[in-house]
Amino acid sequence: MINDYVLPKTVEDALAALKQGNAKLIAGGTDLMLDLKSCKAAADTLVDINGIKELKGIKESDGNIIIGAGTTHQEVAESFLIQEKAVVLAKASGSVGSLQIRNTATVVGNIVNAQPAADAAVALVALGAEAEIVDKEGTIYQPVENLYAGLAKCKVDSSCQIITAVRFPALFSNQGSAYVRLAKRGALALPMLCVAVAASLKDGKIEWVRIVMAPVSTKPLRALEAEELLKDKEPSEEVILEASKKAAAMADPRDSKLRGSRAYRSSVLVNLVKRGITEAIKNARQ
């Protein structure tokens, strides 16, 4: 039962509010409101961070793109900066739910929720993003991919810590990214599979690549072997296919009557990874 709803103006006030009883942070609340209603989550105080000005917006600083915790998916999807320097995230955020959901739900919410198929989190891992975590001790930065503590469990202790932002290096002109998503419907649908890729080219060869797949594990899954295979290679169709097969072989999708069998998802994933890598490289060349 929710007994109180507070709207702090600063991160410090929010941290203080969190100490009172069983409090939970709320940003967009699109998932939390449902979880509270269905008793999947419990809280007696909601601490709404939407009144904290410093948590709003997207900015670029020293080659890093920083997205505040109060920033919605739609703001990210529409941002020219993100479209230009991290298109994988613009596409991922743009494919969440529906416009109404994207106007409310936040990118950082995707991390806190720790659902393996949360579109924006998958893209953030591909971008090598770090979360800015504030508690009474100060501020620390943790790679987003290290924040998963199991299915739908985030390592950030929401009773005393706040993710205030995510940051990642803006992609240079020799770098590119791509987001590939397979869903049963064009809107209002979680992905059956999604693949986020970021790649850097140097002298016609792949300098580095990050390939992330979901939901094929308890968290967005890096295809490290495939990344390694592609390193320093010229991106031919053959090597991309080989890497895609390697990537898909790492995946461990569940059998789901709603979102596809393991056999189907494992097999079709090869094609999605292939498309992701191909498009990211094309994007890097442009």
Partner: peptide, 10 residues
């Protein structure tokens, strides 16, 4: 969300 009736984009 789970019963896939078509939307405007489909």
């Amino acid at each position: 969300h789970k019963y896939m009736l078509p939307t405007a984009v489909d």
